[in-house]
Amino acid sequence: MKDYKKVLTSIIVSVAAMVSLSACSQANGASRSSTAASTVTAETSDLSSSANESAGDSPTQDTGKGNILIAYFTLPMEDGVDAVSRASRKQSDDGTFGNIMYMAHVIQKNAGGELFSIETAQKYPTDNMDDLLEFAAKEKSDNARPELSTHIENLDDYDTVFIGYPNWNADLPMPMYTFFEEYDFSGKTMIPFVAHGGSGASRTVSTIKELEPGATVIDDPVTVYWDELDNAESIVTEWVQNLEY
């Protein structure tokens, strides 16, 4: 009888031990699963963060130098010559552009910002260079102020304004006079860029300073000669990268 009780007691102890070990094993397994789940969540979070950072790395994002506007005036000629500067249109992977428009896109690619095209209500003769030259010369002699058909609605949003235009008869195109009289750029940094047929920027930068005395106008504009248009991207890119503003 005593031997029977000993055997029964031994069986009970063994079963209890097995139950205890099983419970311990399940608890440890749950703990390991919880740890693994936490690790996966953390890794997924890191990947998501990296993806968001990559998505924000846009060529037109704010560069940290303030909000940027790139305003430009151009009249692409129908025969492939761009206004009085006589520059051919530029063919790129993004399309075909007149010289100033192309320079504006290169600036945006390197500095960010928003593009704004300065356009006039009146139409200019763009099918014949001589007619356009004569028209532009008469506008200058009349000290004309052509009406603009596009307008900046949120100028206060911008700290830096790139200003692009062709050099017409060693002067600003007359629509640019209208533009500068319409807006007060006081407190803003203005950076000219110019296309020309051999005269560079002439004294157009000094004229902008006179028209916008409250603005800081950069003295070193980029100028692209018509036969340099194929090199415009490298010229403008290097200029933007070396600007201090």
Rank of each mutant, 00 (worst) to 15 (best):
K2L: 12
Y4G: 01
Y4E: 13
K6Q: 12
I11S: 08
A17G: 13
S25V: 06
Q26D: 10
A27Y: 07
A27N: 07
A30M: 08
S33G: 09
S34H: 11
S34D: 14
S34E: 14
T35V: 14
T35F: 12
A36F: 14
A37S: 14
E43T: 15
S45G: 09
D46R: 13
D46Q: 14
S50A: 15
N52S: 15
S54N: 15
D57A: 15
K65R: 15
N67T: 15
L69M: 06
I70G: 00
A71N: 01
A71Q: 02
F73G: 00
P76N: 04
E78D: 02
V81T: 09
A83F: 02
S85V: 01
A87S: 13
R89T: 12
Q91G: 05
D93A: 14
D94N: 13
G95N: 08
T96A: 00
F97Q: 03
N99S: 13
I100S: 00
V106E: 05
I107W: 03
A111T: 04
E114K: 14
L115P: 06
S117T: 08
E119H: 04
A121W: 09
Q122S: 09
K123H: 10
K123T: 12
K123M: 09
Y124H: 07
Y124S: 06
D131A: 10
L133N: 06
K140W: 01
A144V: 01
A144K: 06
A144P: 05
R145F: 00
P146D: 07
E147V: 09
L148V: 10
H151Q: 14
I152L: 05
E153H: 10
D156N: 14
D157C: 08
Y158P: 01
Y158W: 05
Y158L: 02
T160W: 02
V161S: 01
F162H: 07
Y165A: 00
L172Y: 06
L172I: 07
F180R: 07
E181I: 07
E182Y: 10
E182W: 08
E182I: 07
Y183K: 09
D184F: 06
D184I: 08
S186F: 00
F193T: 07
V194H: 01
A195P: 03
H196V: 01
G198Q: 09
G200F: 11
A201R: 04
A201K: 06
T204N: 02
T204S: 07
V205I: 12
T207H: 03
T207D: 06
K209N: 08
L211H: 07
P213E: 12
A215N: 03
A215T: 04
T216G: 00
T216R: 02
V217P: 00
V217K: 01
I218R: 00
D219I: 13
D219L: 12
L229D: 03
L229V: 15
D230I: 09
N231T: 12
A232L: 07
S234Y: 03
V236R: 04
V240Q: 05
Q241D: 11
N242W: 01
E244W: 02
E244Q: 13
E244H: 09
Y245H: 06
